[in-house]
Write a protein that binds this DNA or RNA. Structure first.
Lengths: 194, 194
DNA sequence: CTCGTTGGCCAACATTTGTTGACGAACACT
DNA sequence: AGTGTTCGTCAACAAATGTTGGCCAACGAG
């Protein structure tokens, strides 16, 4: 049990486990309830510790949120796949991303609820999606608009599927989502501007 | 005691103005803040009334929300336009709808925050969008999935544009939105299933 | 005018929220 | 051993929230 939480060779504090438990519980609660209804007390109860520990470790509820959802989309290098496959690649990547952990749902719920959450999503869009789109869209001037359209499509599907839970959206299989959404993203990325 | 609360030709109670003021303030607050942060006290203050009046008229906060956002999408009859124009028609209609009042933004914010809000959106989807899509998509079996994809695209754009406020999404003009999103909806509505 | 009904405000309630500080227990080091 | 630091709990705080009931002014029919 010599581990630091992340490889930066920390002194391996005894409380790292607790810290991780809090973060884990926080992510789940934020994803399930949104910012306001995810109370510090509930998160602390899930992590089986006292609410005051949350304050001591993360300063405030905002601090906890900031620490809980620092997110890396791990976007694939769109320059490395055939141009015509960019849309499907992106679609598949996002579905996988969304299925495998609830952090993106947390971001989405909190972004819709909370000003800070919305700003966080803007940062992710600007710092991660924009550069990726820039690799397949040659005209730099059109990159922001095209990326925004892609974001709209992807977030819209996540909204209907994981938050609003429209039954037909939930029922779609991964392959169906990719087959429908892939060409849309492809068009937003590479089709001549209409 | 002849009063109906909302009969179309009611006895014109003295309090109707107040009731309307409350509903107006409630819609604005729900749209701006979401369900939890839109407090009864703030709504009452906007309507220049005592918070207890809200309770008297609408019973509870849930009751107020239910009364405030009973929404009619006023979807156009998609059977009446040329089949190839269905997508653009739908896209334009939604942009207009969203621009002209904040109720849809309220629904979206509350749907992401509140269980009741999400169910309300499911009802709107089922009772209004599904029938409209049924008029352009011949195969009844595919209607729910296609409608869900349309909803995802439309709600996604609204999310990025009016809630998260991604700058490039905000910057798009009505015509650009229709030009980009119209063909997407058209494909979801009428293209052969991929 | 008189009196019941309606519209409105005020004060209070119980609960829940984020947040704080005091205090004890487990550990690390000499 | 002893001692200082880390980890954790308990109890309490002030503020805000939804909600309730009582009281007063204005109105309308007799």
């Amino acid at each position: 049990m010599t581990a630091g939480t992340h490889a930066t060779s920390g002194p391996a504090r005894r409380s790292d486990a607790t810290r991780a438990a809090i973060l884990h519980a926080a992510r789940e609660r934020f994803a399930a309830d949104g910012y306001e209804r995810a109370t510090i007390r509930a998160i602390a109860r899930d992590a089986r510790i006292d609410p005051s520990m949350v304050m001591r470790y993360f300063g405030s509820k905002d601090g906890l949120f900031a620490a809980a959802v620092s997110f890396d989309l791990r976007l694939p290098d769109l320059g490395a796949v055939p141009r015509e496959e960019a849309g499907r690649t992106l679609a598949g990547h996002f579905v996988d991303m969304w299925e495998e952990n609830g952090e993106l749902t947390a971001m989405l719920r909190v972004g819709a609820t909370n000003q800070g959450g919305a700003e966080r999503m803007q940062e992710i869009f600007r710092d991660q999606l924009l550069p990726a789109v820039r690799q397949v869209c040659p005209d730099p001037e059109q990159v922001p608009a095209r990326a925004a359209l892609c974001a709209a499509q992807v977030l819209g599907l996540a909204l209907t599927r994981y938050v609003l839970r429209f039954p037909p959206a939930v029922a779609l299989s991964r392959e169906e989502v990719v087959a429908w959404m892939g060409p849309t993203l492809q068009r937003y990325l590479t089709a001549p501007s209409p």
